[in-house]
Every structure is written in C-alpha cells, then in structure tokens.
Design a protein around this nucleic acid. Structure first.
Lengths: 215, 215
DNA sequence: GACTGTGAAGCCATTCACAGCT
DNA sequence: AGCTGTGAATGGCTTCACAGTC
C-alpha cells in the first residue's frame, strides 16, 4: 500500500465520513460527484474536501468532478475494506458484550471474531455466537486469527496491564474504551473512545443553552 | 447557572477528562493539584490546562495550585453532576440494547431510565430492567421523566424523522450514534458518535504504520 | 521558590480566491 | 462554463515565556 506523509489528523478522521457517503452514491448507481455536492451532504466546506482529497494525489478531474467508482475503491483500500479484518473484544462486561452485539456491522470488511476475559466462568462460553477465550490465549489467538486490532473494554484499573499484554502479544491497534491513558510503543496505534465523556460534553452544552434561554 | 461565552469546543471536550481525574484525586484524599501534575496524568500540555481553566475565571491560586474540592465541585456543576439526569435510548436494536446495558455508569448522576422503539413486539417489554415505550409515548415520557437528552440508535434511514419527533417532543440534546447528519433547531444540541468511523480511522493508522515498517 | 493567568508567538486546520484543466 | 487543486489569508487552538501572586 502507498503511504502518505503528514496527513492531518483532522483529515484522517473525516475519511470514514467521505467513504460512507461515496458508498451510498455507488449503491444508488451515481457515477460522479463534485466537492460541492459532498459538502452539502456532509456539512463540510467544499474547499476542505478538495484539500483533504488532494493529500492523496489528484483524485478528481478539473471541470468534471470525482468518479464515484475509482474514488470509492481508493478510499476503500485506505480504510482496509479490501480485506477482511478480524477484531477481538477484550473484556466482556457491559460495554464489551455490547460491542460484541454491535459488531461494527456498518463496515463490510470488519468482523468481530472473538472475545477475551479474565473471569474463569466466562471463558469457554459462547456469547452472541462468539467464543470467549482466556487472557492466556491472547498471543495464540492473535496469531491464529490474524488479529491486528482489539477493542479494549476492561475495568480502568486493569487497562494498562492488559494493554501491555496486548502489545507483547503483537497487537497493532487498540480501540480504547476505557478512560485510562495507555502507554504503548509508538508503533502501536491507539484510538480513544470515551462514551461517558461524550455524553457529559453534551450535557455541558445543553446546560449552557438552558442558561442562555433563561437570561 | 453561570454561562460562559465562547468556550472553545476543544476545551469543552476536555472537561470530562479533567473532571474524571479530579474526582479520582478526591477519592484518594488528595487536597490540591498543579497544572503540571494534571498535565502528566492526562498528557495535555500544562499551559493548555491553565488556559482551559481560566475561561471559567480564576480557579486556582498563584504559587499554590488548584484546590481539589472546590474545582471538583465547580466542574461537577458545569457537567450537570449536581442533579440526576435521566437519559432515554431511542431504538433498541444491537447498539441501543448495548447502551441500555452500558448505562454510562461512569458518571454518578447519569441514569438511563427508559427506552423507545417502533417495533410493536418490543414495546411493553422490559429489557435489562428498563421499560420499552412506543414512539407514540415520546412526548408524554419526555415530560413525565423530565428527559432532556436521548441517545439515538435507530437505523440511519429513520434517524432524521425520529429526530424531528424528538425535537417536537421537546428534547434538548441528542447523542447521535447514527451516521446521519441531523437537521435540528440550533437550540437543540447534537453530539455525534461514530463507532464504526473511529474503528476505520484506527484501521487507517494501522495500515499506514504497517506500510512504513515494510519500507 | 512555586505556580497561576495571560499576552504574544507559533502551529495546525479551514476557507478564500483563482489559475489551470476539461 | 464547470470544477479541481492549491498558494495565500484567516481563524482557532496550543505553547512559550514571564509578570503577578502567594
């Protein structure tokens, strides 16, 4: 795969957004689109879209726009949609079993393939059709199932210890649902998702809005 | 409540992070902290922390630092932790039932109190201890339970229509788990959470890292 | 001496505006 | 004429660096 130097983080975080909409166009049989159309659908400035795309080369044609099929294929590869990716869920508590159920089904190539937990009474059981392995099997399963990425949903206090185990077992990316800041080698990627934080931020805005009203 | 003009979005999104760590200090019986300590724990530059805090007035004392108790109380109020907040879950599919189970238990004052669905066979049932209401009961329940915020987890195609109903029923905030861009009056706050997008962004970084290695 | 609060500088991302291609 | 790709301008956020306070 090509690698692109110095793509802004903000751009990287918009790629899934672009990709999803372009797939939608493809499903509808649309053959081309302009940055202006995409801009209106996604509420992202059209110049931002053109600049984002331009980091990856000249994806469009002047005076024409962008070709749905070729751009969709291009972004698909960027986001790993060209090969099946197994994801493990580490920690099968409330949120963990929730994610097992969720399955990230929006992306075609993503498959939640197994789960891990420390609790002996969970190990060996099948939850929502998925086997639960012992943490001792981490290294083995990561290799056998070619797991590159796991979702981490253990209790906060155990997060760093488990992250260390994951790194040792060769994991390449962690989708971290705990509020613990993880220390990992920089070759391992971490993406933090703080659901309670998102809700609290929303509460903050709602509170501010209510106070504004009352004035 | 006080309102603060023009707090940067970036600051608002860090408030839960700060608050959680300060609660942690409080639990440990610590009585003061400096921006430097917080900086090291959260990996946020200490000047950023001081600037973020300063938007809300002079919260600290020069030469001393910040008082755990008073700052924790202050942020608690900002984030609505001084009163119980009921949250509804709209759409009890995979992700919806997952959130019902998750319960945002990390925040003390947040309580997932009910769920709504369009499917007649779900309505009236109890899931994880929560009653499922019909969408027709939205307005009634929003009033009765003083719901200000709901999590929206319906299929993408229905998201806008349901959002309209929510707005009509008087909801103040929507935690939007669908990839649909919601059109709402600007007095209604929307916070988007795109779990599949987060995972795809992580996949992008992992792919880039792998390509770098191979060079 | 220690630490905050904040002007000023710097950096990253967005947006403008237009040359260049179809 | 229509739309991209991109220098230049702008804006928002972060970081420096230090005066002010305890």
């Amino acid at each position: 795969m090509e690698t692109y130097p110095k793509i802004p983080k903000a751009t990287a975080s918009r790629l899934p957004l672009y990709y999803r909409y372009i797939l939608h166009l493809e499903d509808q049989g649309v053959s081309k689109f302009s940055s202006k159309e995409l801009s209106e659908a996604l509420d992202v400035d059209s110049a931002t879209i053109r600049r984002d795309f331009s980091y990856f080369g000249e994806l469009g044609k002047r005076g024409y726009g962008y070709d749905v099929k070729s751009v969709s294929e291009f972004f698909g590869k960027l986001l790993g949609e060209d090969r099946l990716m197994n994801i493990g869920v580490v920690g099968v508590g409330n949120l963990g079993s929730a994610l097992v159920k969720f399955r990230f089904s929006a992306a075609r190539s993503i498959r939640v393939s197994c789960a891990f937990d420390i609790k002996e009474d969970l190990v060996g059981r099948i939850v929502e059709g998925l086997p639960i392995y012992s943490m001792d099997d981490l290294a083995t399963q990561i290799e056998q199932q070619r797991l590159e990425i796991v979702a981490l949903t253990v209790p906060t206090e155990q997060a760093q210890k488990v992250a260390d185990q994951l790194v040792d077992a060769g994991i390449k990316g962690i989708l971290n649902f705990t509020p613990q800041l993880l220390q990992v080698p920089k070759s391992v990627q971490v993406q933090n998702v703080d659901l309670t934080g998102e809700l609290q931020t929303l509460i903050y805005y709602v509170n501010q809005e209510r106070s504004n009203q009352q004035k």
